[in-house]
Nucleic acid binder design. Structure first.
Lengths: 338, 338
DNA sequence: CATCTTTGCTCAATCGATGGAGCAAGGTTG
DNA sequence: CAACCTTGCTCCATCGATTGAGCAAAGATG
């Protein structure tokens, strides 16, 4: 007879179980959601109902339950991509932390498309998310305003917004550290100490701007001027980075500050195609971590963002309520190669 | 006054909008869900209601809507990890394809923990998912039986189950291709043609078994016997692979068939720590693709699974209805290095 | 002008779970 | 044994959107 249900496409409800257990739907409901002690239901009835529910493969209808309840415990997250170690790790840890805090995580990926971002945010609001964490959004303030209109809390992760609390990496300090390391290794390995190159990202992007500022400040401290042609910021994509690198002199000895592993894919393709042997006249570092990229020849080190700390800070903000705060800065870890 | 709502934590409903537009809730509902033409609502009223809904930042309550509707259009996916290019790409493309087919994707990540897998499956069933696609699950048949009890369709991706339709990579052929390439490159670059090593995965895992079978068959075709100590299958994790490699002779010339990029991380750590200079007395290939790993020295090639085809096959299965079928085999692409 | 059709809307039941209010039976107290 | 408490339930309104049924007014038809 369970087959009949399946055929009819109907799922077992508390009413079905109530009938089978010869009791009321409200007793079943309270037994199955754990509130039966408060409601003075006997253990005998509880055991019976649980046994029947198990046997029937009962699964509560979350829609009905959430409709009635005050809180949904749903927290939404918007990420641009998954197929990248950084965002993959963010999504994964977001889910783990949310579950550990008794919340229900829903992550969605928006391909850096503004229209998809907006659509995804609306969907999450429709699903009664209590909070939306956005990372890598193209227009965070738009998402914030959508959330605000619906009374949904919102938080920006690793990108600063004006209207919602933000948690961001300390891009400036991380960039200074990486730039210093690059100078060090170019000197040590190549005897080179001229101005470095900066590749990837776009200037309108806050993170890129801060990283470039750190990069330039270290040059200034060393009395070096960075020529304009050393700053290549055509966007993040691998293809654009590869294309941009073609403007660089073919066999120049140099040091590259690569802004994100996505751009690094393009850069690595470019120098592999230069057909150099093992004698790489080139050192590079990258703001972003990938375990395989870290082992590539010529890589002097990578800046790893502290994802766990950023997420915990974000969840703390959720719990604290959202009085507007200054962006929270989280330090990065520089992982230098040998 | 919208602030009052927000303060009260109440979201705008069709009843609020009906009051503002001086019409009924059912008119508002049909206007906002697009069925107003069928219900002969005038364009004048529709425009007015849409304008008000926009102004009030209305977002339909998906819970209420789904509770009433017959179909949810939700498709769920369970992946073990996101922080890995393979599963990241699966999750990302799953979302894209689902949206393109007018479905609502919900992905969740279960850390290869059986208990979390079961919990996640129950949650997705509660959310009225119409279908669940599981990949990398530790116990796919258990998930299938949960789904069956709830009348939810289920499909196994890249792992074969007994009770639900499966779509899997052609692991055997892919493994044969990769083994052949390894022999070729070991001969060409190292003058080595002895039996290769197989590293990573576990024998109880279907994919590992198929890949090992392909690996062994190519050896057999060449009249080579693979010593037992050449088959290292301690699980997938990087740490276990690294540990297992320590049993291998320190400076042996060899060729490694690495089963997944996760294991490859351990293998690469191992041989980097051997402190070899550029003169790598070692060639390896990997069943799984990662763009940075593909560029590491010593890597002769990677087998890339055809994620898009696998997902399309899975969605076609969903639409076809789930008469039990033979597992669908999807060929892999061998990406050889130079 | 009586009848029928079309237009444009409203009413009310419904989806499944929840929880406050209330009720009957049995036990306790003075 | 009357008044009260405790135990163990049930009843029913409710959450917000959907949709079949139905109704009034305007227009068309003979």
């Amino acid at each position: 007879m369970r087959d009949d249900r399946a055929d009819a496409g109907k799922r077992t409800t508390i009413y079905d179980i109530a009938k089978l257990a010869e009791t009321s739907a409200s007793a079943v409901s309270s037994i199955l959601n754990g509130s039966w002690r408060k409601r003075r239901i006997s253990k005998r009835l509880a055991d019976k109902v649980i046994e029947i529910a198990d046997r029937e493969g009962y699964a509560a209808n979350a829609q009905a339950s959430l409709l009635r309840r005050a809180r949904s415990n749903i927290v939404g997250m918007i990420v641009p991509k998954y197929d990248n170690r950084y965002f993959g790790a963010i999504a994964e840890q977001f889910e783990a932390i949310a579950r550990a805090r008794g919340l229900f995580p829903v992550v969605t990926c928006t391909q850096r498309e503004p229209a998809l971002e907006v659509e995804a945010a609306k969907e999450l609001i429709s699903f009664q998310a209590e909070c939306l964490i956005a990372t890598g959004a193209t227009d965070p303030d738009h998402l914030t305003s959508l959330c605000r209109a619906a009374g949904v809390r919102s938080i920006n992760l690793d990108l600063p917004g004006h209207d919602a609390p933000s948690v961001i990496s300390d891009n400036y300090s991380g960039a200074r550290d990486l730039t210093r390391l690059l100078f060090d290794r170019c000197e040590r390995d190549l005897g080179f100490s001229g101005p470095l190159h900066f590749v990837g990202g776009r200037l309108s992007d806050h993170n890129t701007a801060q990283r470039l500022r750190g990069f330039l400040d270290i040059h200034r401290e060393r009395g070096l001027v960075v020529p304009d042609r050393h700053v290549l910021v055509p966007g993040y994509s691998a293809d654009k980075a590869e294309e941009a690198m073609k403007s660089v002199l073919a066999n120049e000895t140099m040091g590259l500050f690569v802004n994100s592993t996505i751009s690094l894919e393009g850069v690595v393709r470019w120098f592999q195609n230069r057909g150099e042997g093992r004698s790489l006249g080139l050192r590079y570092g990258c703001f972003d971590y990938d375990p395989f990229a870290a082992l590539l020849p010529g890589n002097v080190g990578m800046v790893q963002q502290d994802i766990a700390s950023m997420l915990h800070a974000a969840f703390d903000l959720i719990e604290a309520g959202d009085r507007p705060t200054e962006p929270i800065l989280v330090p990065c870890l520089l992982r230098a190669s040998l």
